[in-house]
Amino acid sequence: MTKAGKQFNLNRLVYFSAVVDTGSFTRASDRLGVSKTLVSQQVARLEEEIGASLLVRTTRRVEPTEAGVSLHERCLRILREADDAYGELAQNNAEPRGMLRITAPNDYGHSVIAPLTAAFCAKYPSCQVDLVLTDSRIDPVLNQIDLAIRVGWLESSGLRARRVGEFAQFLVAAPSVTKQQMPSQPEDIASLPYIANTALKDPLAWDFQHETLGARSIRVQAKLSVNTTPAALSVARAAGGLSVLPDFLVEKELASGELVRVLPDWRLPSGGIYVVYPAMRFRPPKVIAFVEMLIDKIRQNTT
């Protein structure tokens, strides 16, 4: 606010800041591409509006007064925030284009991300996608990855992450496995063959929750172990035993009856679906567009 109670022209902060940064009206005019007279006029009007002297000329350069130093510090924040806001809007409004490099785990990548990349390329013909599916945690910065999809329980890191959805875990088996004995309590699992997924942190320990019976923690013994979730699904479909698998991976098998849910009244902990970015000021339009499509896909699957 000015001494008269009116708002001053914020554009004048740009002229004032350029003078302080360069220490000269002449160099400020060169930086801004305007005349020295215009810079001088704008700074003079700013001083008049504020009611304080902001600059003082020495023999070698122009220095800020005490009031000028204080205003310049605030100018830097104001102009930086304005620049960030402009940059974000410009990025959001730009057309997605270029190569989008994505990494995702094998199970979620095959069932959700891979089909989504086809829809993405069809919607944005100026984009190309390089999809890397692996259960290893790839460093997005070192491997020049634009977007990492992480599923499960996210570990802390210096990267920026956003939770965009969640998934349920189901205990499943082929119908023939439970034909003679369908478990009614978590403890009953011990008498049936179990398929362990060693890609999990602790594949043999499970916490079940029942609406009225409370919580049960059990530990199973593996009849067979595999190191990827899709492999656990393949063994389960081949009647190799019971296994805990994510809902997005078994929805077709459950709908067709190829697999059945075991202990459907008992819930297992749900996991998160995250998008992880390298730390940067702005998200490229191609990244923003793909994440929006992923969120829409997740919402469609939960409605």
Rank of each mutant, 00 (worst) to 15 (best):
R163W: 00
E73P: 00
M280R: 09
D21T: 11
R80Q: 03
T103L: 08
Q185E: 13
L245A: 01
F8Q: 02
F167L: 11
V112A: 10
L213I: 12
R261P: 02
R27Y: 12
L200I: 07
F290T: 03
M280L: 04
Y277N: 09
N92K: 11
V19H: 13
R45P: 02
V291R: 10
N301F: 01
V56S: 09
G272E: 03
M99L: 15
E73W: 01
A222K: 13
R219F: 02
Y124L: 04
P175V: 09
V172I: 11
V275D: 10
V69E: 15
L133Y: 04
S234F: 13
Y15Q: 07
D296G: 09
V14G: 06
V226K: 11
L133S: 03
S126W: 05
F282I: 01
A279C: 07
Y108K: 04
Q41T: 11
A215N: 03
P186I: 05
I298Y: 10
A239D: 14
L32P: 11
K223C: 12
D247K: 07
M1R: 14
A239G: 10
Y124E: 03
V19M: 13
S17K: 08
T134W: 00
A232K: 13
A238V: 13
D130W: 01
I78F: 11
Y277G: 02
L263E: 02
V39T: 13
